[in-house]
Write a protein that binds this DNA or RNA. Structure first.
Lengths: 164, 164
DNA sequence: TATTGTTATACTCTATAACTATA
DNA sequence: TATAGTTATAGAGTATAACAATA
């Protein structure tokens, strides 16, 4: 699961997972000129980089996001976590089950409302989050490695104009 | 399937489909500062806009991309189409089946190699592609409506530095 | 009667493997 | 023996609906 320091992660490691608009036998036509298609290609590469750093650990981008969210919001309810990640409640249950089975989170019955849980990181969970943050940073850095600091800031600003 | 001229499509119509990093009870922590997460949010919105313009027609972004690709590359083999969209051959078969069932494409046995087909648009397919292109353009325009022309060009340039 | 979370179920998407027919 | 395409099958992921406990 750890990436060796000597072979740095590169976006070139996952280029093959996304089709390339430029060099292929086929012409993408209108798709060539659609921002949505460019975003999709970038997303595939980012997702592939995450899959690569997570390896065969069973961790997925979604599960990692869930753990990060729990770490940042100790005691959050499952419904809140589901909403924050755009998930149904059953899907959130499963993601939390995954981490609970690995002793990384625990469900504590809320003292004021015994229908709901507050979700908290365990000691092992804190360690795991630290590792995961490093891996996520590696993948994200590899994704934008070809951009200067100024370009990256501008890309983030422009993306935020879309999703904010 | 046609969007009425009087109610213009807006990204605000699908905002609810992607979680918002800014206004919610939870803090996204590290995710807040990851380009990959911003790309994912933008991708969800773009995908949702496409779903909205396609309505309940059964057309999906993937199927629309397939038809566009066939229109731009008449006579392409299924394997080429699959590769260009990052699909397995069975998945490409299904997407082409969808359009064939709607009389929009036809498989013509290649005269030189009778194992393979060339895929071609029918007359109905040409009409459908024209409609679809207008819908895709609507969705894409709505996605980037908040950007100036200069900002859009810069966004496309920066995304291309990632996916190219 | 409404809400939190779980379980049961079904659906969509996709891939791998096995098959047919050509080469 | 290899390749193009199809069919069969299975897995992952997700959602909706039904359910239990609590409010």
């Amino acid at each position: 699961m750890q990436i060796d320091g000597e072979d740095r992660l590169s976006i070139d490691d996952v280029r093959g997972r996304a089709p390339k608009m430029s060099d292929g036998p086929l012409d993408y036509g209108l798709l060539n000129d659609r921002t949505g298609f460019a975003i999709k290609l970038a997303w595939i590469l980012g997702y592939s980089l995450l899959q690569k750093v997570f390896g065969d650990s069973g961790i997925t981008p979604l599960r990692a996001s869930m753990l990060e969210l729990i770490a940042t919001n100790p005691g959050a309810q499952q419904t809140q976590l589901a909403n924050a990640l755009g998930l149904s409640r059953p899907a959130a249950t499963l993601a939390i089950d995954f981490w609970e089975a690995r002793d990384c989170v625990e469900r504590r019955i809320a003292p004021d409302d015994r229908r709901s849980f507050g979700i908290f990181l365990t000691a092992a969970g804190h360690e795991r989050v630290t590792e995961l943050r490093a891996l996520i940073k590696q993948a994200d850095d590899a994704l934008v490695a070809d951009l200067t600091a100024e370009e990256l800031a501008e890309l983030r600003r422009l993306l935020a104009k879309i999703h904010r």
